[in-house]
Design a protein around this nucleic acid. Structure first.
Length: 281
DNA sequence: CGGTAGACCTGACCGC
DNA sequence: TGCGGTCAGGTCTACC
């Protein structure tokens, strides 16, 4: 799935063509469930309501309304795209969101239509009403990696005593959000830290390097418009460009770009993990 | 509580 | 060409 840079890129691209406040004309579900059942209240909650902003928290897109927020998680293969009159529904199109331009514009020919497509259906929608109990999906999330809150001290304290690998740790959304399987390997390569290292034994200096590496790798990926992986597409149909810059991810056996040593791969925490034995200690 | 393995899905690719 | 096995950007839950 989209990791943080891809979700942020989707958010930016949706925000570029949706200028709040715009009224949601209609939301249609072509199946009752994605990863989870689509909440019953969602349709009534947003139809006719004014979309105020499109935000992001962790890997969630947040469509904010006065009465609450629609969460959209993209899972592994989820994507939003804008569709235009005459375009046919495609395989795995599950949700259609129709938005009027301007507040209550009566001209339906002017509507904008967005479709959520997700072959594997690991993505989902949720609804959080204003004033409702703090949403369980958001309440335990760690700091945003690009915020000041995510610092070496912050990471060090969250890793203290933990017996998981540092790679599993930085992918744990309770420790820091937004880092997925690709950027975990990439960030640890930049930081010069082996992914197999025990999280609790990572030094303060290494935490400093890891934090800096996570921030830089995510920011560069955002600046590049997200990564290109097989079936991933942005709302405008284009792919990202970060792939060409992967240092270790999916490069097993190839030469490390820094030292030439062969990149190694191993399953850690159930996920393929890549690193350079010479550059990472 | 902490840690890990399996589950949830479809599709692409690879070897036979 | 077909078929079976493996793997894929992420959580979530069951179990130790």
């Amino acid at each position: 799935m989209p990791e943080l840079p891809e979700v942020e890129t989707v958010r930016k691209q949706l925000a570029a063509v949706i200028k709040p406040p715009q009224v949601v004309r209609r939301i249609e579900f072509f199946r009752p469930d994605l990863r989870f059942k689509i909440p019953r209240q969602l349709k009534a909650a947003i139809e006719g309501q004014s979309l105020q902003a499109i935000e992001r928290r962790a890997k969630y897109l947040i469509f904010r309304f006065a009465g609450g927020s629609m969460l959209s998680h993209l899972g592994m293969t989820g994507a939003w795209r804008e569709v235009f009159p005459g375009e046919e529904r495609q395989l795995h199109d599950h949700v259609r969101l129709t938005i009027a331009r301007g507040v209550g514009s009566p001209n339906r020919n002017d509507d904008q239509v967005f479709v959520f497509n997700d072959p594997r259906r690991f993505g989902y929608l949720d609804w959080i009403a204003v004033g409702s109990k703090r949403n369980q999906r958001l309440v335990h999330l760690g700091p945003e990696p690009l915020s000041e809150e995510f610092s070496a001290d912050n990471l060090k304290s969250r890793l203290r005593g933990r017996k998981i690998s540092v790679k599993v740790a930085i992918m744990d959304q309770k420790i820091v959000v937004g880092v997925g399987n690709i950027y975990a390997s990439e960030a640890l390569f930049r930081a010069g830290v082996r992914p197999t290292r025990l999280a609790g034994k990572v030094t303060a200096a290494e935490c400093h390097s890891i934090v800096a590496a996570i921030k830089s790798v995510l920011q560069e990926a955002i600046d590049a418009g997200g990564s290109t992986i097989s079936d991933y597409r942005h709302p405008d149909g284009n792919t990202g460009a970060f792939q060409v810059r992967f240092s270790v991810y999916d490069r097993k056996g190839e030469a490390c770009l820094a030292c030439g040593h062969a990149v190694v791969a191993k399953t850690i925490g159930g996920r393929s993990t890549y690193w350079c034995r010479r550059c990472q200690r």
